[in-house]
Nucleic acid binder design. Structure first.
Lengths: 345, 345
DNA sequence: CGGTGATCCGAGAGCGCTCTCACCTCCGGC
DNA sequence: GCCGGAGGTGAGAGCGCTCTCGGATCACCG
């Protein structure tokens, strides 16, 4: 824990190279319009002094920070129990570093944190924000709109406010759900149940809609609300077995739910997939591959989602910088999903 | 994606309140030494104009950023397959926001990224760094020492360089491993095998040492190298069954490894825990609770580790600011582990 | 050989803030 | 009633950088 010695400034480099500050600045920022011998001299001086630009001073005048906030609004600990979030973060990180941007992470716990985040974003510390807010009635999107920070959402936000300019990246939850259920139908199943996710999240709602698209007039008793957790899956599965003992398939809203359901099915003596076929969602590897039997599920490319979010945001910022309204504003993207067949269906 | 209007400056607030910039600055930074009526006037002006201090300008003069870098150096994707990292991050985040610090996340992929991180840290963009570098021969600790940024490590770094002032927070891997193996001994097991983690990480080495502490002259064939993954666990378990068919217990270096081992044991017809007792490490919930049977394992308080890292760093920075050498430098902390008994042993 | 661009470089003005220092109160003590 | 001091406030310098703009330099053409 030692301090760095006084760091060299532009001035110092300029002195050493025998040029003006302006010239050093030009070289440091790309070197356009400076003749080769001078460029060389400056580079050498920079090297020798170990000069690193002071970002604060630079931001002060350019009003850019080359930093993006990633806001993860998850009151539940759920995000932390699965690699979903980490993978997305990784995609984001890759894309941001490729464009020399820093990643400022804001995790919020509970409602009171929202104000803090809003203040931070409004404070102009970052050039833009990537926000994960998958809950209905989340105040965050509103706060952000108010803060006036360019933003891309992860997952379709539920939002009653002004929808103009709202950009998001999402998986095709509805389509994926349809594929899952159609697969079960294709296996000859007809009493197909659905354990939903937490219905305060758009992804859960969309997956339910996808299920309904295929099971047009499904027995309503075949639908039970879960909460994306294994425990919820167990509870829901138990209820289903009571309600509809004749069911022959289950589409669970995610893999953790499916894992819980599988356990209850096993306890009840049903064979999977012979008696009851099971399909999950997410393809959360450590879970989907570990279940008994291994889980047929719907895969989404999570890392790509993250990367895409970052790309969209940065592109938007560029456009922003060049001139407002040049070219089309970036628009939302919905990524396709694929069914991964394993043993459970 | 709209721009904020021109943001108000200190100057503007000062004008509105009819005071000088200096006074506004004083009020904004705590208001000491300013008389009440003035404080009130300034507060009102701040409110009305929606003034938010420009962090860049402030940093430029104070040389503080109120930002901490979190460096996650993990060439493998392993970190992302478990909630370990996310939990730690959460602990860190809580502690940092409690002290009004931002969290800048730096994820590195592969060796080339190290230079980038080193440059960033040396660039004085952050006040300190929290670094996860659990690999032997990692160049990162050296780079960081060189960058001269106050740093706390997550997990004991393996480091041949100057150890002075190296602060880390770690779990008691060795002690936890001892507890696990002792537990197995207590169950009357004597042919206790160990599937190690990736031995290029200090945690794996420490856990192996703990195993050896108890199994003083263990049959060397009972130790097989794994890599912290389920696949590695399967492979190692298969080998163990060939080498030592008489084994009656397995201590796996982590829960994922244990999950793989469990599967192979089941395939081979061994009953767990009757024939072979199994203990894992980490208490990675979605894994440990989902296995068949549920896993007895060693729990570490991961979130607390994160929080502690942040606290140690911030404390160090304070001391730094006040005056070098006042009070004891923060020193490393090793957190205790606890054995969680479930069904597998 | 003078004129005319084009090109390259430097001087200097800020960006918005903090912080030192001088000044200006206003109080109490002699 | 005057003076010393404490406490409150403002003026102004400066943090390290970018960027505009004017001046110097050079090539090239008529």
């Amino acid at each position: 824990m030692t301090d760095t010695a006084q760091r060299p400034t532009l001035e110092a480099v300029a002195a050493r190279a025998g040029v003006s500050r302006a010239t050093v600045s030009r070289v440091v920022n790309g070197g356009d319009g400076v003749r080769e011998p001078l460029v060389e001299r400056v580079r050498k001086a920079v090297e020798e002094l170990g000069y690193v630009p002071n970002q604060a001073a630079r931001s002060l005048v350019t009003r850019r920070h080359d930093a993006i906030a990633v806001v993860v609004a998850e009151p539940e600990t759920r995000v932390f129990a699965d690699p979903f979030f980490a993978l997305q973060l990784r995609g984001i990180s890759k894309e941001l570093t490729a464009h020399d941007n820093q990643l400022v992470l804001l995790l919020t716990e509970g409602r009171d944190d929202h104000a803090r985040v809003g203040r931070y974003l409004a404070g102009g510390h970052v050039d833009g924000a990537l926000v994960f807010s998958l809950h209905l009635d989340d105040p965050l999107p509103g706060l952000i709109q108010h803060a006036g920070v360019p933003t891309v959402f992860g997952g379709r936000p539920d939002w009653s406010g002004d929808r103009r300019g709202v950009v998001y990246v999402d998986s095709d939850n509805r389509g994926g759900a349809r594929d899952a259920v159609r697969h079960l139908v294709g296996l000859g199943r007809s009493r197909i149940a659905h354990i939903t996710g937490a219905l305060d999240q758009t992804s859960a709602v969309d997956r339910l809609d996808g299920y309904r698209d295929v099971m047009v007039d499904a027995d309503p008793r075949l639908i039970v609300e879960g909460d994306f957790t294994p425990a919820g899956g167990e509870r829901a599965m138990r209820e289903l077995l009571v309600r509809c003992p004749d069911l022959d398939a289950v589409f669970a809203a995610n893999d953790l739910t499916a894992a819980g359901a599988l356990r209850v099915l096993r306890e009840s003596g049903r064979r999977v997939p012979e008696d009851v076929a099971v399909v999950g969602f997410d393809d959360m590897l450590p879970v989907a591959e570990q279940t008994e039997p291994s889980l047929t599920t719907v895969r989404q490319d999570i890392e790509e989602m993250g990367r895409l979010m970052a790309r969209l945001l940065l592109r938007g910022l560029d456009r922003h910088a060049v001139e407002q309204g040049v070219g089309a504003a970036p628009s939302s993207v919905v990524l396709p999903t694929t069914l991964v067949r394993r043993a459970s269906a």
